[in-house]
Amino acid sequence: MINVLVLSHHSPFDDLHIRDALDMTLIFAAVEQNISWLFSGSAVLALKKHQYPEHIGLKNYFKAIRTLEIYDVENIYVCEKSLLEYGLDKNNLLIAVKALNYQQQTQLITQQRHIVNL
């Protein structure tokens, strides 16, 4: 099995970066790769509970993030600093995640064979 990391840095309301990252994560999970997903910067907002993007004319694909567990995608990480910057904590998120500091993120990245930066 190959270690693959999807990195998300962009706001979920900025183009389709998060949707593309979700699709990519599910594709790698379908072909039984060891997939991880790291949210940093404004991308952490995609994990926030109680959002209604349809109110601003966007499709609500945030609900699909909850299905990751069904596809055995269990390695979901968030940047600890980004959570703080956006006033979030693990209790405000749609799914269970592991918060990583900068050093832990660097270590995670070095353990990967492929990195998809979206």
Score class of each variant (00 low, 15 high):
Met1Asn: 05
Met1Lys: 08
Ile2Tyr: 09
Asn3Met: 05
Asn3Ser: 13
Asn3His: 11
Val4Ile: 12
Val4Lys: 04
Leu5Ala: 06
Leu5Lys: 02
Val6Ser: 02
Val6Pro: 00
Val6Glu: 02
Leu7Ala: 00
Leu7Ile: 11
Ser8Asn: 06
Ser8Leu: 15
His9Val: 01
His9Trp: 00
His10Tyr: 08
His10Asp: 13
Pro12Lys: 00
Phe13Gly: 02
Asp14Thr: 03
Asp15Arg: 05
Asp15Cys: 03
Leu16Lys: 08
Leu16Thr: 12
Ile18Cys: 08
Arg19Trp: 06
Asp20Phe: 02
Leu22Cys: 03
Leu22Gln: 00
Asp23Asn: 12
Asp23Val: 00
Thr25Phe: 00
Thr25Trp: 00
Leu26Thr: 12
Leu26Phe: 13
Phe28Cys: 05
Phe28Asp: 00
Ala29Gln: 12
Ala29His: 12
Ala30Phe: 03
Ala30Lys: 07
Glu32Ser: 13
Glu32His: 09
Glu32Leu: 05
Gln33Gly: 06
Asn34Gln: 10
Asn34Ile: 07
Ile35Asn: 15
Ser36Ile: 12
Trp37Gly: 03
Phe39Gln: 04
Ser40Val: 00
Ser40Asn: 13
Gly41Pro: 04
Gly41Ile: 01
Gly41Val: 01
Ser42Met: 07
Ala43Tyr: 06
Ala43Asn: 04
Leu45His: 09
Ala46Leu: 06
Ala46Trp: 04
Lys48Tyr: 11
Lys48Gln: 15
His50Pro: 02
Pro53Trp: 08
His55Pro: 02
Ile56His: 05
Ile56Phe: 14
Ile56Gly: 08
Gly57His: 14
Asn60Arg: 11
Asn60Cys: 10
Tyr61Cys: 09
Phe62Met: 14
Lys63Pro: 01
Thr67Glu: 15
Thr67Pro: 04
Glu69Leu: 14
Tyr71Trp: 11
Asp72Leu: 14
Asp72Trp: 06
Asp72Ala: 14
Ile76Met: 12
Tyr77Leu: 10
Val78Gln: 05
Glu80Ala: 11
Ser82Gly: 10
Leu83Trp: 11
Leu84Arg: 06
Leu84Pro: 00
Glu85Tyr: 09
Tyr86Met: 09
Tyr86Asp: 15
Gly87Phe: 08
Leu88Ala: 12
Asn91Thr: 14
Leu94Met: 09
Leu94Asn: 13
Ile95Leu: 09
Ala96Gly: 09
Ala96Pro: 10
Val97Tyr: 11
Lys98Leu: 02
Tyr102Leu: 04
Tyr102Glu: 04
Tyr102His: 08
Tyr102Trp: 01
Gln104Trp: 05
Gln104Lys: 11
Gln104Ala: 15
Gln105Trp: 03
Gln105Lys: 08
Gln105Ile: 14
Thr106Asn: 06
Gln107Gly: 06
Leu108Cys: 01
Ile109Lys: 14
Gln112Cys: 14
Gln112Phe: 10
Gln112Val: 03
Arg113Tyr: 09
His114Met: 07
His114Asp: 04
His114Glu: 10
Ile115Leu: 10
Val116Pro: 00
Val116Ser: 02
Val116Asp: 00
Asn117Phe: 04
Leu118Gly: 08
Leu118Trp: 11
